[in-house]
Design a binder for these strands. Structure first.
Length: 815
RNA sequence: GCCCGGGUGGCGGAAUAGGUAGACGCAAGGGACUUAAAAUCCCUCGGGACUUAAUCUCCCGUGCCGGUUCGACUCCGGCCCCGGGCACCA
């Protein structure tokens, strides 16, 4: 027993103990309550960063605490191993992405193990392993059979120099990040999942997910964006084409003064053929970026096509404009413009001197000024012929009824959510299991031919996917006609791998099926932990795939993640840590200097988990100091010559210590399990440690109480700093491993006190404090308050208007 | 631009259901111990006023402006700043 805390000895010993005793390896046990605790799997970038440390520490605290609650806890770990950075690193260093990835995994696994995270490493998986992605390919084939997969042309960022598709982050100021060439928008055919088939359900289930933060549910709700409106068909004057639009404001239909279509719209292409200025505009629009942020912020520009649409009710000729803010990827690629009652249409009309026709009047008949801004709320219809005088609500029905009767309109539920484009023109990804036959068209690979193995060891180039030149991979035969055919060279979006990995952890060794009955035992994940940046996309895709798995009868519930904790970012000097800013902190160096427990303690203590965390080296020092103090306290206690023995009755000092002991257990229990505010749990533990440090041990009863208190302290802290607690638990005389000890309980009877403090406010300001007996009634409290000197001073010569007593809190007097 | 968060001492944060603003920790200052330093321990610590003195008392204070309330960090309206997401970064 060393009188000084030495993390460098304690930590490897504790880790070796867990390892040899297989403490965290779990098996299905229907007789026990399961608890599946999962932190989002990392991308193997090469080095653990503080965001990982925070994420995995939080997960480990919850997992360990639940294990102490008696749950059968599964906590696995794996690697999101496909993705762009591996290709970029490969191009830079001339290494194969597989080699880079596997080396990174090996290094990062070692880093995670040093943190003392209680993972069941026997279930580890890497998504770039064919044993993993073959089931993803299998799932794709099932989805294909179900009609959830289709191909359509969509816009991508095209680098004309490198002849490759660029990710949004690779487009900088409209130019390719490597080539510096002006990026073009190009349409290419890609595979899509019909996630919109599940839009209603994805939305509806959100209201039944109390374990998710309100903000995440709100974000997903807005993302799916259900709206009810009308589809309207506009005929084009003297031409065979029609223009389809969707609007939620069909009440303003009579105020339509023009139509706006995307530069890629069929009619726009026709217009371009007839007029070289129009074509020049279309060509000009083919630069920029596909992102919504870009689109909604760029200068709104347009050009007249020379075509006119006919208003479906009045027959009025409405000019059709091509506008750069209308995009083919969104809806039908056309909108009806009502400048009087839509801000964007208004700005566009002002710029190009298009007519502005008011058709809605405010309900209170106040005049509006259409020279400065559009009027967007609902109101009463004017200038709308037979619809004049109707409210917007009534007009929505009346106008749409007429459109339906004329067969130029229909009611439509519209979603902002778009189908999920899963094709990527990249090498380092899971191959999409399709074969292109010149005779039969695209054909799915036979299930028996899975997996379609990605050839490893290729060196990617900046010219995009090298699979196209790899004949061994490319050349195959058509599963339908048997003739020569080529493989699909597009690979899966990496969101695909992360949409089902949590299910595969339950049975990673299953080679006959994607999932087996073990998945039914463990799923859904009880607690999921990850960065807030994944609030919408990853979590929505995973929910979608889970519902598909349910429909394939592979899982038997609707939602994959029962409770969700979204952790904030780790910042240094107010900014996100990044290599380019040079403000990174190396977890390894910290672990070496202070030990994993200190790093864990600080990352939990510095901020509540959902908020961003400001890194502080000095703060780490403070966490280390605390652990040293705790160690010393336990050491001094076990070295004491006083023999512990429980008294028949506790003294008043002892009663106070006992009160704090039980109060601390109660507080930490609530903070860990209910509130998940680890920072306040640690503060409470520190506070009680301070009390124990000042507690003088004079008698056997004191020694007994100290033993109880320190045991509780070690148990409460165990999920957060497991190594030191593992050691201190032995020091306190226990043989059973701490990791499997039951969570401490508290006694309400100890928490009842004879008296409590109340505050007296006069006109909202605190003027006195009272010690009030536990069973004092309201009248007694009032009398007590009026006896206070300072209270008398403030109410002298005044009349009391109100006298409020809030039990156990305060007395408020208004004069 | 749109959607979702956040803003409290010198700093990180606490205040759980509208009821004592600043728990816990860091930094700083002072002291003890030491030949010295480190480590450790003790004290002070939002700003200001008053007093011989005090752990008394008073005023101000939770991004800014306004409102509701006996009472607002907390609720409502408007604004400013910072962060996350916006469909090919993960």
């Amino acid at each position: 027993m060393n009188p000084h805390y030495q993390a460098e000895h304690i930590e490897p010993a504790a880790q070796a103990y867990w390892d040899t005793h297989k403490t965290f390896q779990v098996h299905e046990d229907p007789s026990r309550d399961k608890f599946y605790c999962l932190a989002m799997l990392p991308y193997p970038s090469g080095h653990l960063h503080m965001g990982h440390v925070r994420n995995y520490t939080i997960g480990d605290v919850i997992a360990r605490a639940m294990r102490m609650q008696g749950k059968n806890v599964l906590q696995p770990m794996g690697w999101d191993a496909f993705g762009l950075p591996a290709e970029n690193a490969a191009i830079k260093h001339g290494l194969a992405p597989s080699q880079w990835t596997y080396e990174n995994i090996a290094h990062m696994r070692g880093q995670l193990q040093k943190l003392g995270l209680g993972y069941d490493w026997s279930r580890e998986l890497a998504t770039c392993d064919p044993d993993y992605y073959r089931w993803e390919q299998w799932l794709f084939l099932q989805m294909y059979k179900k009609g959830l997969v289709y191909k359509k042309a969509t816009l991508v960022n095209w680098d004309p120099v490198d002849q490759t598709v660029l990710a949004n982050e690779q487009v900088i100021n409209g130019r390719g990040w490597r080539s510096d060439a002006l990026v073009e928008l190009r349409e290419i055919p890609q595979w899509f999942f019909k996630i919109t088939d599940y839009a209603e359900e994805l939305l509806a289930d959100l209201s039944q997910m109390p374990g998710w933060p309100e903000q995440v549910r709100t974000m997903q709700q807005h993302w799916v964006g259900r709206s009810v409106g009308a589809n309207v068909t506009f005929h084009v004057d003297n031409r065979p084409e029609t223009v389809e639009i969707f609007t939620t404001r069909v009440d303003t239909l009579m105020g339509t003064t023009y139509l706006a279509i995307a530069p890629q719209h069929a009619l726009a292409i026709q217009a371009g053929l007839q007029d070289k200025d129009v074509q020049a505009f279309i060509d000009d629009c083919a630069h920029g970026k596909t992102s919504e942020a870009e689109l909604t912020q760029m200068e709104k520009r347009g050009v007249f096509t020379g075509f006119y649409a006919l208003h479906p009710l009045t027959g009025a000729r409405l000019p059709i404009w091509i506008a750069n803010f209308v995009l083919m990827n969104y809806g039908s690629g056309a909108v009806m413009a009502v400048p009087a009652h839509d801000e964007r249409d208004f700005a566009f009309a002002k710029k190009y001197h298009l007519p502005i026709q008011q058709v809605i009047m405010p309900a209170n008949n106040e005049p509006i000024d259409l020279h400065t801004a559009a009027y967007t709320p609902y109101g009463t219809l004017i200038n709308s012929g037979e619809f004049d005088g109707l409210s917007s609500e009534a007009a929505l029905k009346a106008i749409s009824s007429q459109l339906i009767a004329l067969k130029v309109g229909s009611w439509q539920v519209h979603f902002r959510l778009r189908d999920w484009g899963i094709s990527r023109q990249r090498y380092w990804g899971a191959p999409i299991p399709m074969i292109n036959c010149t005779v039969c068209g695209p054909q799915p690979v036979n299930e028996t031919d899975l997996p379609v193995i990605l050839p490893e060891g290729l060196t990617p180039s900046e010219k995009g996917s090298v699979l196209k030149e790899h004949t061994e991979f490319l050349e195959t035969t058509c599963p339908l006609c048997g003739e020569k055919a080529t493989r699909e060279t597009d690979t899966f979006d990496t969101f695909m791998e992360s949409s089902w990995y949590f299910a595969r952890y339950t049975c990673p060794d299953q080679n006959e099926h994607m999932l087996d009955e073990r998945a039914l035992y463990w799923l859904p994940v009880d607690q999921y932990i990850g960065g807030i940046e994944h609030a919408v996309m990853h979590l929505l895709y995973a929910r979608f795939i889970y519902k598909v798995l349910r429909d394939l009868k592979l899982v038997n519930n609707d939602e994959p993640f029962t409770r969700l904790l979204t952790q904030g970012m780790v910042l240094k000097d107010g900014a996100k840590m990044s290599k380019s800013k040079g403000n990174t902190v190396d977890p390894n160096a910290l672990i070496e200097k202070y030990g994993a427990d200190t790093v864990r303690l600080f990352s939990l203590f510095a901020a509540p988990p959902e908020q961003s965390l400001e890194w502080s080296d000095a703060g780490v020092e403070g966490a280390y100091r605390y652990l040293k103090r705790l160690y010393k306290l336990v050491y001094a206690h076990v070295s004491s010559p006083i023999k512990a023995s429980r008294p028949p009755e506790w003294s008043s000092t002892q009663q106070t210590v006992r009160f704090h002991l039980h109060q601390t257990i109660k507080k930490v229990t609530e903070d860990l399990f209910t509130r998940q505010t680890f920072n306040t749990a640690i503060a409470a533990i520190m506070e009680f440690t301070n009390i124990l440090q000042k507690y003088e041990i004079n008698a056997p009863a004191d020694q007994a109480l100290m033993q109880q208190s320190l045991e509780a302290l070690v148990l409460l802290l165990a999920p957060m700093t497991p190594h030191i607690c593992h050691y201190l638990w032995q020091m306190l005389g226990h043989d059973t491993p701490l990791a499997l000890c039951p969570w401490p309980g508290f006694d309400y009877s100890v928490l009842n006190r004879a008296s409590y403090e109340m505050v007296v406010q006069i006109n909202g300001k605190v003027r006195a404090r009272l010690q009030v007996d536990e069973n004092a009634d309201e009248e007694a409290i009032k009398a007590l308050a009026l006896q206070e000197e300072n209270v008398k001073k403030y109410i002298e010569g005044q009349t009391i208007k109100k006298f409020i007593v809030v039990p156990k809190r305060l007395v408020s007097i208004v004069v």
